[in-house]
Every structure is written in C-alpha cells, then in structure tokens.
Design a protein around this nucleic acid. Structure first.
Length: 865
DNA sequence: CTCTCCCGCCACCCG
DNA sequence: CGGGTGGCGGGAGAG
C-alpha cells in the first residue's frame, strides 16, 4: 500500500469521498486517485478558497463549506486528472471575476472532458507540465464521471441539515459549472434527490435544498408504500427466480424463468402514488418515480439486497404503460437511480451476485465465511473495477454476518502479529476507560493529537476509507478496504441488511439515507439510538468488550437524556453522518427496515451492545476501514448536531472553511506505525468570546492503526482531558471511547476525540482558521504537552508532503470551555453538512456564547431542526 | 465481444 | 415562441 499521509493540501481539499476511497492500491483505482490527488495538490493555491461562485445565491453555503471544497474536489474528481479539473480549481481559486468570465466563456462546460487543451495551459502554470501530460493521459475515466460520484459531489455541497431558517437554493447552472458537468447530468441527480425530497424544484433552474431533515420521513413513507406495494414479495419472487436462473443456467436451462411473465403476477400494483412524484405529464416522472421505487424496494427488502435486475423488472412491470423499448429505458432509470445512490446500488447488486454465486457454487447453504472470502478475492482481484458490477463476481458488500466472520478471523490474525501496535497505540488503558477521565492529554502527548477540529470528521468519513485502506486498516479481510478502495464511492458499498444490522460504509449518500432513517426512526430517544447502534454492533458484538464500552455508553446515556433538546439535532448528526446504521426500532410508525436485527450478525445481546454502539461501529470500521469516522461520530454526537454546524461556521468565519479538515499523520515517530488523524482547523476559535470560554483545548485525534494492523479497536479521545470523565457524562461524545474487539486483542486502538479541544487561550490557536487553511503551516494548538513534529513522509496521494506540523501538547488540562462542539460536530458531520458555511457562521455566532463546556450543544432553536 | 452507462441531441412542455 | 427539462439513441469505455 502506499503510504498514506495526508498532506495539508489534501486536508485542505477534502476530496470527495469516492475518490478517496479509491486511493488504495488498486491499480485502476489508484491511478485515478493519484491523479486526482495531484490535481488537487497541484494547485497550491488555496484551492478551497472558493470553489465557485455559488455565492450568488442567497444562502447557499455549500460552496464555502469546507466541504465545499468538494466542488473543487469534485471537479477534480470528476475530472480528476484532466487538466480541466485543475483548471477549474485554479479558476475557482482565482478571483471570482475570472471565474465568471470563464463561465461565460463556457469554458467549463466544454471542459468536462474536452477542455484539456485549455486547461493545460492553465494547469501548466500551476502544475508542472509533466503533470499536465499525465493528466491528459489519464483522462477522467468514466468512473470519474459517474453519476454516483457526481451525486456525492453534489451532496457534499450542501449541508445535510440546513437550518430551517436558511434556505439553500440550488442553481442548476452553478452546480453544473461547479461540478463541471453538463446540466443534463444535474437533472438526473436532482430528479433522484427530488424523489427523496432532499430537494425540490423552486423554479426554473432553481431547486431548493431541504437537506436530510425530512429524509427519515420520506424513507418511511417510501417504505410504507413499498410495503403496500408488496415489493418485498415481488423482490423475493424475482430474486428467487434469479437464483433459480443461475442454477438453471448452470444446469442447462436458460433463462425462461426470468421472463417477466411469471413475475408479472406480482407486479400488479399500480405505481406508487408517492406524493412527491410530480408525475405530471411526460416521462419525466420516470426518473423520479423510478428512483422512489427503487428506494422503496430497497427499504422493503428484508435482505436489503436489491439487484438492479430485479428492481428493473419490478419497476418496469409497474410502468408497463410504456412501450417495450421503454423497458429498457426504465432499466436505465433504475440504473441512474442506483448510480445516484451508489450505496444502494452497489450493495444490492453485489450482494445478490454473491449470493447467487455462492448458491450456485455450493448448492447449498451459504457459508458466510466462504462467501466473504470469495468476496474478498473478488474484490481483490478487481478492486479497480468499480463500475463493473461484477456480474458474476461478487459484490463489494458483505453481509454483516459474513463480514463479521471474516473480520474476526482477520482480526485474530492481525492481532497476533500486530499486537504491538495495539500496545503502542493504546494508551493507557485508563484513558480508554470511560470512567477514567480523559486521557486525552496523555493521548495527545503520546500520539500527537492536534487541536484541530472535527471537520476532520467529515473529511474523515470520506478519507478515512482511503486512509484505512492505505493504512492497511482493511483489516478484515481487506475485503472492505479493497472494496472501498476499489474506487469510487460506488465501490464502497455498504451492505445494508434489512431488518438487520447494517454494515455501513460511509458513503455520503448512504449516510444520508441511513442516517436519516435512523434519526427519523428513532426520533427521539437517545436510548433508542443506543440500542440501534448496539444492534448494529450486533455483528461485532462478540468482539467488543463491553465493559469499557458499556461504561461509556452508560455514562453517555445519562448525558443524553439530560439534553433532550439537543439530542435531536445531535442525533441527526450522529445518526446521520455517522452511522452505522442500525435500524433500530422505528420509533415512529414505520419501522423501516429496522427493527429487528435480522441477523446476520448478530446475536449479541442488545443490552451489552447497546452501549457499544460504538463498538459495533468499530467493528464495522474494521471491516470497512472507513467506518472509523462514523463510529466516532456517533459517539460523540450525542449532542452535537447543532454544534457541528456551528463549528463549521467558525471556520468559515475565518472565511475559508477550514481548509484543513484534518491532518493525517502517518505513523509519526513513536507511534509505531500508527497513524494519527488530527483534526484540523476545528478550533473553536471562536473568536474572542468563545475562546475565552474555552479555556483548554484538547485535541481530537484519531489514531489509526498501522496498515499492518487490520482491524483495530478505536479509541476515541474525548477532547477533554482530565475532566473528561465528567465530560463524558455530560456529553456523550466527549468520553473517550474505547472500542475493543474481543478478538482483536492487541489491536491498536483508535482514539478519537470527538470534541475538538480548544485552547483556552487560544493564543496558540488564534489563527486557527488561517492556519488551518493554510495548508502548510499548521499550528497545532499548544495543547499538547509535547510537541511533536510530524512529518508526513509519504503523502498519501500525490505524495505531496505535508509540511511538518508541530504539535505542541499542552498538558494543560483542557477545560470544558475550550471544547467546542464545533469540532466535534464537524467531526462527525457528514461532509455535506460540514460544508455549510452559512450554517457554520450562524451556528458559530450562536454557539459562541454557549460556553459550555463541554459539549453541551446548544442548539439554537432554529437550528434544532 | 459484451455490456454498462455517459454524452448530448432534440423533443416535449411550460410559461 | 423561447427555454427549461429530460427521454433516449449512440457510442465510448471497461471488463
């Protein structure tokens, strides 16, 4: 694997999720990634500065958001290598005027693929000529252009949970420009999102961004509709057929079965009358409707496995009105939907494939382990082929059960060999212990925690995957990692298990969907939330050592309860972004998928698990590498939503959204291979007032196990130092979490500090924003007692070396004040959410006052939902 | 070679 | 009638 250090640049420009993932070694994937990175990196200029002028619109913040950079990223991603991407970046970096001009010229549009020439020139300036050549060589592959990625980019531009007060307008043109794609593509995305009510059309060229607030409801409704439609049955029917077909094929028969005729019986129902669908005249509805139906299928599916084939059949049947050829189109529609919702697509797709295969192979029972192995193999073999659904080959996603199995094995293996890592990494057990107050400092000192922020998280979500992959976190089998690495977002497919615990890979979309679902489902009680997570964990269950976790969880609960109001929001954040999704019980009427853990996984007693929600997450993480972020996020989040946003604002205040979201340091000295993820710019900075409030800072950090270690327990360091324990109690997030997997034993622990630590005085951090922004110079807050200089030896991507960062650790105990939720929030937030500049600002302002310590999130009334 | 799905033309419809 | 939308064919690209 390549070394993975994130350079500041990287941090600065949050890459898109998808791309990041790709980073892996996978040949193809890497190529892409690499290029992308380069392009990103190439422009040393503040890439993020401003992506594009979305600003025109009133409230949009998306652009500015840290995430916003996504745009840039997006572009890059979209056209990663292409000069165009660079060009775009440059332009964006450049003054608005320039941008405008460019736009006018229409450079961008053509740009997508074609402008190379033009871009080249530009790029040259910024980047080296050679680079250009390379770029040209590698044009953006189709993958890069995929709808899935595009969709992610799109989503990244907007806050997941926009304040109600704020209205975000989406200008199709702007988006198209910023994403470097044609409008036509944007329509596809918008239509799908519209079907989920994430956006709604306001006027021509104008869509309103609703965010995920209503997503849970929407999903519930869809689920309900799907249930009414009896999609589940249909699916089962078709799936069965599919399997049979496979068998037949092998046997000799051919696909008769497939034919719809038989199936049609099931299909009688009429189209869903989903309100949202603006089924007006025209076909237009098709995409929207198809999307909804597709989602419905997914939601309804107990197995959570939905093959495109099956979906297409069902949906097609429903929409028979259209002529035959239409069928084909419908399939395409489905495909589009799937593309937009990559996770779903992949997952389902892959899963089915796997199952079928297995079945075929073994006529019989499906051995999870074997299955997983196969999958791994496949994944390994074709990491790079994101697109390929791998029709025969397996899927990327694994069932929890299989995943867990593999995972465990891997863990064992790893743990044995790599125990060392765990040793080192794992700081004082005490630290881990929830009860123990917070080892944060110690951790920091030991591990070089940086006072950076949570934004990290958002980034982390995206990048963690990459990290993990790179780092070799792929532990469990590499399966996950590889899969994720595979390239695009798409490759990362979470496996969703319908009633079961889900293993979720953090992909934006999925996150959104699932997170929301959870939220919605369990709207209220934190406890439920916990339970969910616990469920999720189920898969991991065994592994976890509950004791600590339990404690943590216990502590948390109280806290959570304490802060009901906040909870909601926080919850959102938590659930949403973080996610592991576990369908819990749907508190609400519908239980979407949730409710029961079906089972693959686990049978872990919920009780134990509950607290462990984290653990599970951890497991997943292990499994999927990427998961890390999520996990942490969840923990932390209890109250964080609002906060999260706030922080972001703060960043923004500086103006640039924090460029740095987090710093990834590859095994700095002393770490034994552990990589540290520092949150960047998160400071609460808060400007004056707030700063005062926040005396001490702890730095949130994540320690990533060395590549060698596959699975690892995650340690979250609460931002708070000493008081932490209390803090924990107060805030769910705050507590350090230790996730240990039983099997892991020696595995390294990840420390994640959800909350960012702020420096009380901040003197050190004063310029946080700038610093953060500044790619190169980062000052970590003095918080750290010791200063570590971390040099990223090998930059992960482009290899851009990150400038060395010095971390000063200040033993100083962090006071709660310092801690700002902001960090955390950001941390946990999904990329999209993070990005919202506007929110940040507002929140920031609002939040500023909130002193509180720790983590109480005060959510501005408005913010709450 | 097969198959997926991206591109973008151009028709549909709204205003 | 103009322009926003988006259906749908063609073909590039990936396996």
């Amino acid at each position: 694997m390549e070394v993975n250090c994130l350079t500041l640049k990287d941090l600065i420009n949050p890459r898109q999720p998808g791309l990041d993932f790709a980073i892996e070694d996978g040949e193809n994937a890497q190529k892409e990634n690499i290029f992308v990175d380069r392009s990103r990196m190439a422009p040393k200029t503040p890439i993020k500065s401003e992506p594009i002028d979305l600003s025109k619109q009133k409230i949009f913040t998306p652009e500015r958001n840290p995430i916003t950079p996504v745009k840039l990223v997006d572009r890059q991603q979209a056209e990663p290598w292409t000069p165009t991407a660079n060009l775009k970046i440059l332009i964006s970096a450049a003054s608005p005027d320039i941008r405008d001009r460019e736009k006018k010229k229409g450079l961008f549009r053509p740009i997508e693929n074609k402008d190379d020439a033009f871009t080249d020139s530009l790029q040259l300036d910024v980047v080296g000529d050679s680079a250009v050549d390379e770029f040209e060589k590698q044009r953006p592959s189709r993958k890069q252009k995929s709808l899935g990625l595009l969709c992610q980019k799109f989503l990244a531009r907007y806050p997941s949970y926009p304040l109600s007060t704020e209205k975000t307008t989406i200008s199709l043109d702007e988006v198209a420009v910023s994403l470097g794609v044609e409008r036509r593509r944007i329509y596809d995305i918008v239509n799908v999102l519209e079907s989920l009510h994430l956006v709604s059309r306001v006027a021509k060229n104008q869509y309103g961004w609703h965010g995920r607030h209503s997503l849970p409801k929407t999903l519930r409704n869809l689920q309900r509709l799907g249930e009414e439609q009896k999609y589940e049955e249909q699916m089962a029917h078709f799936q069965q057929k599919e399997l049979d077909l496979m068998d037949y094929k092998f046997g000799e028969r051919k696909k008769d079965g497939y034919s719809d005729s038989q199936d049609q019986q099931l299909l009688d129902f009429s189209e869903p009358d989903y309100p949202s669908s603006s089924a007006n005249s025209r076909k237009d509805k098709s995409l929207r409707i198809m999307s909804q139906k597709f989602v419905m299928l997914f939601l309804v599916s107990k197995t959570k496995i939905v093959t495109l084939d099956v979906a297409a059949k069902i949906l097609i049947e429903e929409s028979q009105d259209t002529p035959d050829h239409s069928k084909f189109k419908n399939e395409e529609r489905v495909d589009v939907s799937a593309s937009v919702l990559p996770e779903l697509k992949r997952e389902t797709y892959g899963q089915i494939q796997v199952c079928a295969k297995q079945r075929l192979a073994r006529h019989g029972s499906f051995n999870t382990v074997e299955a997983s192995e196969r999958i791994q193999r496949k994944v390994n073999s074709e990491p790079s082929s994101p697109y390929r659904e791998e029709p025969g080959s397996g899927g990327y996603s694994l069932e929890i059960g299989s995943l867990a199995a593999v995972y465990r094995q891997k863990i064992e293996d790893n743990s044995q060999g790599k125990s060392f890592a765990s040793k080192k990494v794992t700081p004082p057990s005490s630290s881990l212990d929830p009860a123990a107050p917070f080892p944060v400092l110690s951790v920091d000192s030991e591990y070089c925690v940086s006072p950076l922020a949570h934004q990290v998280f958002s980034v982390a979500q995206r990048d963690l995957q990459a990290f993990s992959v790179q780092n070799g976190l792929n532990g469990p089998a590499g399966v996950v990692s590889r899969a994720s690495a595979a390239s695009d977002v798409e490759s990362l497919k979470p496996a969703l298990l319908a009633g079961q615990p889900m293993v979720y890979v953090p992909s934006t979309s999925l996150f959104m969907l699932y997170g929301s679902l959870q939220e919605g489902l369990s709207s209220e009680s934190a406890s439920e939330r916990d339970s969910r997570s616990s469920e999720v964990t189920a898969a991991a269950e065994q592994s976890s050592t509950p004791s600590v976790q339990k404690r943590l969880s216990e502590e948390r609960k109280p806290q959570e309860e304490e802060e009901p109001a906040t909870k909601r929001q926080s919850r959102d954040c938590e659930d949403g972004p973080l996610s592991l999704v576990m369908p819990k019980k749907p508190s609400d009427s519908t239980d979407m998928a949730s409710p029961k853990t079906v089972g693959n996984g686990g049978s872990v007693p919920l009780e134990d698990i509950q607290r462990n929600g984290q653990l599970p997450a951890g497991k997943e993480v292990l499994g999927k590498a990427t998961a890390n972020c999520f996990v942490s996020s969840e923990w932390g989040n209890p109250s964080r939503n609002s906060e999260i946003e706030k922080p972001s604002k703060e960043n923004e205040s500086t103006k640039e959204p924090s460029l740095l979201q987090y710093l990834y340091v590859q095994s700095p000295a002393g770490f034994n291979g552990f990589n540290v993820l520092l949150s960047g710019s998160q400071h609460p900075h808060a400007v004056g007032p707030s700063s005062g409030q926040l005396p001490s800072l702890s730095v949130p950090c994540m320690v990533l196990p060395p590549p060698t270690l596959g699975p690892f327990p995650v340690l979250c360091s609460p931002t708070m130092p000493g008081p932490v324990s209390s803090a924990l109690g107060a805030l769910p997030n705050s507590g350090p979490m230790n996730f240990g997997l039983p099997g892991l034993g020696s595995t390294a622990h990840l420390l994640i500090s959800p909350a960012a630590m702020v420096n009380p005085n901040s003197s050190t951090l004063p310029s946080t924003d700038p610093q953060l922004q500044g790619p190169h110079s980062l000052n970590l807050s003095p918080v750290m007692s010791r200063s570590h200089i971390i040099q990223p030896e090998s930059p992960v991507y482009g290899g851009h070396p990150v400038s060395a960062v010095k971390l000063q650790q200040s033993p100083a105990p962090v006071t709660p004040k310092s801690i700002r939720r902001t960090h955390r929030e950001t941390f946990f937030k999904t990329p999209g959410s993070l990005g919202d500049p506007v929110l940040r600002r507002r929140e920031r302002n609002q939040s500023r006052n909130t002193s509180s310590a720790q983590r109480r999130l005060e959510i501005p009334s408005g913010g709450a939902d």
